Simulated assay, not measured.
Amino acid sequence: MLDDNALILDFLRRTMAHYGLWFAEAVHQVGLPLALEAEREAGDRWLAIALKRLAKTTGQPMKDGLPAFLADMDEQKKTALLETLAVNWLAADGVWFQAIETRAGMHDAKRANDTCWSRFSPLEAARIKALLELEDEAGLAGLKAALGCRLYARINEQEIVDEGDAGFTFRMTRCRVQDARTRKGLPDYPCKSGGCVEYTSFARTIDPRIKTECIACPPDEHPAEWVCAWRFEIGK
């Protein structure tokens, strides 16, 4: 007989996997734009149902649509929680990459990684766009705001070099993944192919007029001051 604690954790794991599979298959069946619309509706509905049901089952009160313990949490703990959630997200990405790499090699792991980014980056942009209540064509100002709300923004260090109406350059000045490789004496992970998918699709979801240019990203050479750099402008 399985232990209930093990089943509780595995039910959570299966739920996350099933949710992700639904989104991936929706993209395949109806295309990314409609899948993003469907995710917004389904995700909002599911989260409200799940939180209310979990609160009732565990005897936790709700406050302003949230479990009371979260609604009343002080800002310092919320900041720490956001960082932990972001690090856990990155860990999930890393262990999946390693699991595929050990079984099928670097080439297939990178292909899987790049495809995941082609789905996740627009999803993340769409979620941030909804949370910030950005217009459909949010412009460069909208993109700047959105970049500050990414999961990466909680665990990496980044900066923006503004060029006014002409555009702006976004630089990742510290990267958790590359820092870990440096500590192990390893070369930079060659993330340019995934980065091109990631940043281009993110910016295009915020505003389809935005054009993305890779200035440099590993395996490209880069200065010590930053790891990768991307330039954004409104297309002519």
Rank of each mutant, 00 (worst) to 15 (best):
D3P: 05
D4Y: 14
D4W: 12
D4P: 15
N5K: 13
A6R: 14
L7H: 03
I8D: 08
I8Q: 07
D10T: 10
L12R: 12
T15E: 14
Y19F: 13
Y19M: 08
L21Q: 15
L21V: 06
F23K: 03
A24I: 08
V27A: 03
L34T: 09
L34V: 05
L34Y: 09
E41F: 10
A42E: 10
W46D: 03
L47Y: 12
A48T: 03
L51H: 03
K52G: 08
R53T: 15
R53A: 12
A55G: 01
T57E: 14
Q60Y: 05
K63E: 10
G65F: 02
A68E: 15
F69L: 15
L70S: 00
L70R: 01
A71F: 01
M73R: 04
D74C: 05
E75I: 12
Q76R: 12
Q76H: 12
Q76V: 11
T79C: 03
A80V: 01
L81G: 06
N88D: 14
L90M: 14
A92V: 07
G94W: 01
W96P: 01
A99C: 08
A99H: 09
I100W: 00
E101S: 13
E101K: 15
G105N: 05
M106H: 12
H107F: 10
D108M: 13
D108Y: 10
D108C: 02
A109L: 01
K110W: 10
K110I: 14
R111G: 02
R111S: 07
N113L: 10
N113P: 00
C116A: 14
S118M: 09
S118T: 03
R119W: 14
R119D: 00
P122I: 06
L123Q: 06
A125W: 10
A130S: 12
A130E: 11
A130Q: 14
L134A: 07
D136H: 09
L140C: 02
A141W: 05
G142T: 09
G142R: 11
L147H: 03
G148S: 06
R150G: 02
L151Q: 06
L151V: 09
R154D: 03
N156K: 06
E157N: 11
Q158D: 08
V161Q: 09
V161L: 14
D162N: 08
D162A: 05
D162Q: 07
E163A: 14
G164E: 04
F168T: 04
T169L: 07
R174N: 13
R174L: 10
Q178E: 15
A180C: 00
R181K: 13
R181S: 02
T182K: 11
R183H: 09
K184N: 12
P187L: 10
D188E: 10
Y189H: 13
P190K: 07
S193R: 12
G194N: 02
G195I: 04
G195R: 07
E198F: 11
T200F: 03
S201D: 09
S201M: 10
R204N: 11
T205E: 15
D207L: 09
D207N: 07
R209C: 09
I210K: 02
E213N: 04
E213M: 01
I215Y: 00
A216M: 04
P219Y: 04
E221Y: 02
E221S: 11
A224E: 15
A224N: 07
V227A: 03
A229Q: 02
A229C: 03
R231V: 00
I234N: 00
I234V: 15
I234F: 01
I234T: 12
G235M: 08
K236I: 05
K236A: 14
